[in-house]
Each structure stands twice: as structure tokens, then as C-alpha cells.
Design a protein around this nucleic acid. Structure first.
Lengths: 335, 335
DNA sequence: GTGAAAGCGCTAACAT
DNA sequence: ATGTTAGCGCTTTCAC
């Protein structure tokens, strides 16, 4: 592999001129530029980025911490992030953390090791909060999707509380008074918000909030399947079921059908996220549409601004949701 | 951020000793080692990986070229790859190529720029085949999932032809004689193999191969939806529909139901991949199970062996498939 | 077993 | 506008 010295020799100029021709051509005479470019061509020269990065103290890499890569929603977020990173000349270092803080910390530490310039965290945990060696100022990090309440880092989030409230109100408007909720893990703030929104709606409609109607899952198909089973085992069944993501709703749907219940005639079912499959369920799933790709895209752009010390307009971006009403929710007949 | 010199000073040794203590502790006196480790601790020292990589000419990064990150199957492959990379101390540079060769070439070139040690390509295109600058020997690359026939690189694939044949034979055994096929893009070898397997089965059963029964899609839900519409518009409808991936099968399922057809009573429907949603369809989808995560995992391990110049047992790994028979396929009543 | 020193390929400050 | 040169932080001979 040829290096800058080789090119300089071929072009009959100094290495500095070669470097300039590549970085800021306007500072070089057109004539010289041509000589250099010809030499670059001839030598098949490609700057050794390891040396460039080392020298200029910038890797161009962004770490993205994902709880579960194979999750349909996160896959969309990653996709958006990758497009944005590519457009800006950055690369994405992917990390499947399985929601484990030790793994998150380990990967976030790539920034300390100068292997990445910043971190995108998609979960409500600050991988830098643990005492880190000589942590002068926290490294560039943005927190998207599930965000830390009152955290010190920029965030990109959805108003989960408002969204859950909107969904619950949709069900209430349809006449439902017993609405089951299959929520996420207890520890998740995202879940806390959605539960709060659900309760807000009940409260505003003067409906009782029955703890028996709330069970938790882990956002998987299986969790939805089992959550639905639990709901159906209740003495007084809910007439509508709100799952905190579409995967769980699809899992629940299977279970409801197996029990011989028709959706939405016998029970309404709604989800959250609007993954592509939601519209292809039978019946198509009423859900909350989230701009998944935009989470990734916005996070990347914000992180890059942080890294490049550009001014940031808003440190806490809230992306819009949309209630996507399809046929899995309908008027309550049981009344 | 402290550097190796700082640590050396603190420990009262030379930088070489610090370096040795970190890389090959056995070559250092236990006593010295302790001093150094204490100094490392005290300084909160983390080696600057940019310098390490620069100096040792090894990045620890692997590029993975993915046609569509948000695709459920690829998301699983990526997940497997990431786990394996992490376990081996490598990192994954993610690239969503959208199947575009220019993007694939651009990212593969990160290897030439010393930003990555090797490439995993999930599509049947050799990003290095174009004449590249002084390409002495092609850089480490492995080709997984959709592989180049007779290519020069190691591959990890499925016997797509055998799998498609097995699936088609399953349908034939159920009495189907007119089997529609919604395949992938024309250019894809993966699709060529599956079509070949489909035809093998027809041929072995002495069934005619009607070109009208084959239409192509692009592996999306929409493509399946539209493919099914095309099939149903046929004068002589198929009694079974084989989609080359589950997404298209799920798209088709929606369309079939909208037309008032019952699956499998009126028409059988089968897919390929066994994505998690397949088992949660209504009816659960008969499909070909592929070990998606293992593709990623095997590709990573093979690539690392290549990079580290370890001997490779087999250059062409074929992973097993499994026919997952569920309730979307049943005996043909139309006969 | 440890230290001194060269140098990886490049950038940027400074000199011309 | 171009060249000279000093490192960036580390690994790795080669002495001792």
C-alpha cells in the first residue's frame, strides 16, 4: 500500500502539498494539484485513515447502543441512524446490549479509548454515570427513544404519556370501561410514562383504575401471548386490550383468537409503534405510529453537532406520534 | 486524557515496560507489573486505540454490508454477527446498502483505507471485483446469505434450491398441482436457486411449469400483497402460493383474505425464512426455517479466521434449513 | 527484565 | 504557494 511520501515523490512535491491537495485543494496551485492528483492515481493512493484519525484525533465513528437489534422498531431506528451517519461521513459502530448495563458501559467506553467520537443510547441508562477514569466532561452522547428523565444529555423522545392517553381515550370513546394494559418491564421509564398516560385517561373519564387489569411483559411476541392469557383468566374480563408495543399486541392477538374471541367484536386490541406488520394483521391493528427512522436520524445529527461543537437548537426534541386507527378497535358491545 | 508516558512516569519505569505489562504481562517481573498496574489505575489510563491500531496496523473493525437493515431476517443475521464479533473482541461497522453496488463498494473500501480489517457481504455482489488501486490480494471478505456462485470468497449459505424443492414437494404431496410462486428480483441468485428448486419439484412430479404462475417481487409486504393480487387475477388460479420470504407471504395473506379466500381451505400459502411473526400469523405460516443468527455468527468467525490467517476448515459452509409445517398449508380441495 | 530510541503515516505550525 | 519539520501515542527492535 502506497503512502503519502510515495505520492509526494511521484509528484515531485512535498508531503505537505499532497496533504493539502487532498484536504483543502483551494490552497494549492491548480497546476500542482493536477500533478498531485495524477500521482495519487498512479500510486493508487488511499490515505491511511488510521493515521489520519490518530493524527487528527477524530475517528468518525459513532457507537449506537441498541437493546435488541432484531426488534422491528429498533431495526428501523438503526436504519435511519445509519443513513444519516453515512450522509454526514460518519460510520456506525453497532452494539446489541440486550439491555445490560455492563455491556453498555463497555461499549460506551470505546469513546474513552478513542475508537468512537460519541454515543447514541436507546435506553434510559447513562453509560457514563459510573465513575470513569478522569472523566473531565462527559463525552458526546445523546439519548433517544427511551430517555432518562431529567438527565443531563440531549434527548429525542416521544411524548409517551400523551400517546398512551390518546390511545386509551380512543378506547374509552368507543365505550370501553375495562381496558387491560400489557406494559413493559417495571424498570422502564417509557413504560412508566405509558402507564401514566393510560391512567390519566381513565381518571379524566372517571373510570376506576383496576390494578388487576395491568400486567407486564418484555415487548416480545411471547409476552403478549402470555399477557393476553392472564387477562382472559380474569373473573371480570377487559373489553379492550392495550399492548405497549405491536409485537406484544400480535402475540396477544394469537391468544385471543385461540380462545375463540373475535377482534374487535368480542374484544378490542391496540398496540404501539406501528411496525410494518401492524397494518397486515388480521384485523389490521390500531396503534400509535412512531417515526422510528427519524429517531435514529435525529439522534445522529444531534450527536454530530455535539461532537463538532455546533450550536444545538433544542436539547430535548420530542417527535410527533399519530394515532393510527384501524379495525382492531371498535365499539364495546358488552355494555 | 493520560497517555503511556504519564503512566511510565508514575510507575517509575519506561514506556516500553508499560506497553509490555499491558500486552504480555508474563514478560514483566511481577513486582514491576504491580507498580505499573497501580500507575494505570491512578492515572485512569486507557490506551489510545487510535494509536494502537495505527501502530499495529489492525483496526478490530468488521464492515457488514446489509441490503436492508430493517428487514426482519437481516436484523437477526446482524444480531448474530454482532454477538460473535463482540465475543471475539471485534466491532461491527454497519452499512445499509439498499442493495446498491456503489454504496457497497464505497463501504468495502474502508478496508483499503485501514478503517476495517474485513468485510461481510450479505448479497451476491463482490464489492472488490471492480479494479481497485494496487489490489495485491483481495482483502478478507466472506459472503453470506445470498452468495456468489463460483465466487472466489468463502461463503455461508443455505441450499436454497433444496429448500424450495422441499417446500414445493410438501405442497405437491398435499395434492396441489397449480402452485404459484412469488419470487424475488430477477437478478438475485438466491431467487434463481429457489425458482430452480421449485421447478425441480414440479418436474419430478411430472407437473407442467406454467410461467404465468411465477411473478416477482422485492421481498416486501407490499410486493406480496400485489403478487397475490396478480395471482388471483389469473384465469386459472393456483391452489397454493409459495412466497420466497415470509414478508411477502404475510402481504399475500392479507390480500387473499380481502378477496374472501380462506387459508388454507381455499388456497394454501407458504413462506420462507421463519421470521418470528410467521408463527403468529392467522393461520400460522408454513415456512422454511433458516438459522438467521448463525449466518451472522458463522460469517464473523470465518472472517476473523481469514484476517488472523488461521486455517479455515471449510470455505463453503452450508447451513441447514428446516421445513416448518404449520396450518397455512393443507390438502387441495379443488381437485 | 528493562530501557532507549526509531518510526508507523499523517497533519499542522512555521518558515520560506 | 510550497516545503520543512515536529510530533500524535504507541509498539518493537535492539542494547544492556
Amino acid at each position: 500500500m502506497s503512502n503519502i511520501r510515495e505520492v509526494a515523490r511521484l509528484a515531485g512535491v512535498s508531503v505537505a502539498t499532497v496533504s493539502r491537495t487532498l484536504k483543502s485543494p483551494e490552497r494549492v496551485l491548480a497546476e500542482t494539484r493536477d500533478k498531485v492528483n495524477a500521482a495519487v492515481e498512479q500510486a493508487g493512493y488511499r490515505p491511511n485513515q488510521m493515521a489520519v484519525q490518530f493524527r487528527s484525533r477524530k475517528t468518525g465513528n459513532l457507537v449506537i447502543l441498541v437493546p435488541a437489534i432484531a426488534n422491528t422498531f429498533f431495526a428501523r431506528v438503526i436504519s435511519g441512524a445509519q443513513q444519516a451517519a453515512q450522509a454526514a461521513g460518519y460510520r456506525l459502530l453497532l452494539c446489541d446490549t440486550q439491555g445490560r448495563e455492563d455491556i453498555e458501559r463497555e461499549f460506551a467506553a470505546l469513546v474513552y479509548a478513542h475508537q468512537a467520537d460519541g454515543v447514541i443510547q436507546l435506553r434510559a441508562y447513562d453509560p457514563f454515570e459510573a465513575p470513569f477514569p478522569n472523566a473531565e466532561s462527559p463525552p458526546p452522547i445523546v439519548n433517544a427513544c427511551e430517555v432518562i428523565q431529567g438527565g443531563r444529555h440531549p434527548t429525542i423522545s416521544l411524548d409517551n404519556r400523551a400517546a398512551a392517553q390518546a390511545m386509551t381515550e380512543h378506547l374509552i370513546a368507543l365505550g370501553h370501561r375495562r381496558i387491560g394494559l400489557i406494559k413493559g418491564p417495571k424498570s422502564s421509564p417509557l413504560t412508566r410514562d405509558r402507564v401514566a398516560g393510560y391512567q390519566d385517561a381513565l381518571h379524566r373519564a372517571n373510570l376506576p383504575s383496576d390494578p388487576a387489569l395491568v400486567c407486564h411483559g418484555d415487548f416480545t411476541l411471547t409476552a403478549g401471548y402470555e399477557g393476553a392469557a392472564a387477562m382472559l383468566a380474569l373473573a371480570e374480563r377487559p373489553t379492550a386490550l392495550f399492548c405497549e408495543n405491536d409485537e406484544m399486541a400480535i402475540g396477544a392477538l394469537k391468544r385471543l383468537k385461540e380462545q375463540g374471541l373475535r377482534v374487535p367484536d368480542d374484544i378490542s386490541l391496540v398496540g404501539f409503534d406501528d411496525i410494518p406488520f401492524a397494518a397486515y394483521c388480521d384485523p389490521p391493528l390500531t396503534t400509535i405510529a412512531q417515526p422510528a427512522e427519524r429517531f435514529g436520524e435525529t439522534a445522529v445529527n444531534m450527536l454530530i453537532a455535539l461532537i463538532e461543537k455546533q450550536p444545538i437548537a433544542e436539547r430535548h426534541v420530542v417527535l410527533p406520534f399519530e394515532l393510527a386507527v384501524r379495525s382492531s378497535s371498535a365499539g364495546c358491545k358488552g355494555q
